[in-house]
Structures are given as structure tokens and as C-alpha cells.
Design a protein around this nucleic acid. Structure first.
Length: 110
DNA sequence: GGGCTGACTGACG
DNA sequence: ACGTCAGCCAGCC
């Protein structure tokens, strides 16, 4: 089902479990677009319901500039509710919460 | 059919 | 560590 790259991004994003975050580049790489991070952001811009868009952050582990502070805090609150902890500067430890599609593993949890 | 925009990323100063 | 420049891909005018 390739309704387009968007559908692929949505499907991949849907595989991200709670308490975990992924960057645009990581998603892009997951669908085969190493430099298509912008396209991923474009797909999110559609903001489809049922999609954990709040689990999508930039490579730095910060919330993207997509919206107002209000929405930014909302995303942060949702992530915290899932168990994600933010740094002093509102930064997520991608080393711990950063989800990977190729984990293959089994011990992926914190 | 052509050009601009954009929820990004990585490199350079 | 922070600010700026350029690149890449798909959708929209």
C-alpha cells in the first residue's frame, strides 16, 4: 500500500511504542529517505488523528518549532505522561528514549 | 510544467 | 555551545 510516502511514515510512526521518541531523520531513514526529514515533517503537518505525533521530535531531542508554546507544552506533557523525562533545558535523552526501527533486539527498554 | 515552501539535518565559523 | 548556510523530497500554487 503505497498511497505515498506519507502512508509509510504514518505506518512507521504507529510502530513507535509509548515512552519512546523518534526524530524526523530517523523516520525518514526508516522509510528509505535519508535526507527526507523535511518530508516527514510535511507528513506530520497533516496531523492525522490516531497518530502519535507527539512522539516525533527533532534530532536534538527537542520539540520542533511547529507550534505555539501552548502546543509545545502539550507535547511535553504527553511525553512525560508516557514516561519520557526531559532535561533541564527541556531536552530528551535520545540515547535512552530515542526509538530505533532496527533495534532487532530484545532488550530495547530503558 | 515550473517554482516556492516547509513540524528537518548536518557542517562550518 | 550557539548562529548561519546549503541540501534534499514531496506537496501546493
Amino acid at each position: 500500500m503505497d498511497d505515498g510516502v506519507f502512508a509509510r511514515i504514518y505506518a512507521l510512526l504507529a510502530t513507535v511504542p509509548p515512552g519512546r521518541v523518534v526524530s524526523y531523520g530517523e523516520l525518514a531513514r526508516g522509510i528509505g529517505m535519508r535526507q527526507g526529514a523535511r518530508v516527514v515533517g510535511w507528513a506530520m503537518r497533516s496531523c492525522p488523528e490516531g497518530l502519535p505525533w507527539h512522539r516525533v521530535v527533532n534530532a536534538r531531542g527537542e520539540i520542533s518549532r511547529r507550534a505555539t508554546e501552548e502546543h509545545e507544552e502539550l507535547q511535553r506533557a504527553m511525553l512525560e505522561d508516557e514516561g519520557v523525562t526531559f532535561g533541564a533545558h527541556g531536552r530528551i535523552d535520545m540515547h535512552t528514549f530515542g526509538w530505533r526501527f532496527d533495534t532487532t533486539d530484545s532488550g530495547n527498554n530503558s
